Amino acid sequence: MVIRDQVKEILELVPAVPRVHKLAHSLRGREYEGPEEESQIDIPKFTLQNAKEEVQASDVELMQGLKEARILNINGELRPISQVYLASILELILNLLVSLSLPPNAVSVETLTSVLADEHEVPRPVSTQVMAWFGEIRGGKWNMDVKEMVMEAGLGILRNHKDEPVEKEVLLAKWASIVGDTFENSISLDLLAGNYLLTPGNAPTLSYFPRSSLPVDPSARFRDLFLTRTRWKVEDITPFLSDIAVDTKERDKLLLKYARGVTDAGGLWYTARAQYSA
């Protein structure tokens, strides 16, 4: 036996967050707002193969990332769907489920996509992909994910209040109006965690503050968070870390590195370890 070398370090494989966020830059200016503007985009196509080459992720992670980022595949081209257009489609779907008496756990894909196409000019490839984002399609039937649908409906309202906060009760009332009596009981602010800042008071208000707009680099992420608020309750800050930490263990490591825990009569708060200035 001949010893050729000695191991001097141990490499440990650990889970990593897929870098799907990199697609945002490549897909800028390609937003899909409906069939009437399909021929107006005069730039080279960005395909699934382009995405695979750019993003360090497995096929499964990439497809999940495209789903979470609401990116359509239109004739082989990747296009982020307009938030306004998506909100419109979801409201149409919720209304049609009631008007056509379709059970949310066994919706005929053919029936729903036909009505959306014929009466509302929503292309079938678009409506089918949107349905797949918010549920499971199997055997021609769509089992709607009520939680995801209700959450997106709430985000559609919240996005209009980035600069002008909305009272909590007003938002909840609008939200209930959109989802209707059938799904009103599924409404919960927990569904919008990581997308808003809550200002307490006699009439609490919410401002749109999505984690997707924050830097992916942990150091820059914490800098922006502590520039926004000098101290955070643990339950308020953790939703803004879920997309940069693969699990709670990794999240706690980030908190130990970039934040300092302080306990007072109001409970546990996190403040910045470094001094930041706007």
Rank of each mutant, 00 (worst) to 15 (best):
K45P: 05
W142F: 10
V166A: 03
A274E: 15
P215T: 12
K257D: 12
T205R: 12
V14H: 11
E110D: 14
S101Q: 11
A265E: 13
L256N: 14
A176G: 12
H161D: 08
I43L: 08
L191W: 06
D252G: 10
L227V: 09
R19Y: 01
Q129R: 02
L94F: 04
K162W: 03
A176S: 14
H161L: 12
R79A: 01
R19A: 13
T230V: 06
L96W: 06
R223M: 12
N95D: 15
Y85N: 00
L96V: 09
H161E: 07
G180T: 05
L48P: 02
L254M: 14
V84T: 11
D5C: 13
G156F: 04
L171Q: 06
V60Q: 14
L225D: 02
I3V: 15
E68D: 15
M151C: 08
V107D: 00
A51G: 05
E31W: 04
V14K: 14
Q40C: 04
I43K: 08
L11E: 12
L172S: 01
T47K: 13
P103C: 06
R273A: 02
R4F: 09
I244A: 05
P104V: 03
L158R: 00
G29W: 01
G65F: 02
I81W: 05
L27D: 05
P204H: 06
V150S: 00
V17H: 02
G266Q: 11
L78F: 02
G154T: 08
T182D: 13
S242Q: 10
N95C: 05
S114D: 14
